[in-house]
Amino acid sequence: MGEYYLQLWGEMCPVPLLKAEKKLKELTAQDTLVLETDHSCTARTIQNWARKKKYLVKTDEIANGIWQIRIRKQET
């Protein structure tokens, strides 16, 4: 169980999503992946993707134009 952090500032779609997908594959349902992005479309894309995958996801705009996304796989 742990928190893993990916800083994605300045990265353009679809790179952040692919990086998140890759990192999440290594994690278990007890781990939380925390992503930070400064792109509105990246935050939206990752959130929609996580919802589609039925992951637990929460997005906060922690500053003007900076989004923090927390994703956790659910126990199945």
Binding site: W9, G10, E11, D38, S40, E61, A63, N64, G65, I66
Partner: peptide
């Protein structure tokens, strides 16, 4: 209008 304006640095 959406308060999302920010000067973004180039990553690398």
């Amino acid at each position: 209008m959406a308060s999302q304006f920010r000067v973004r640095a180039v990553k690398s």
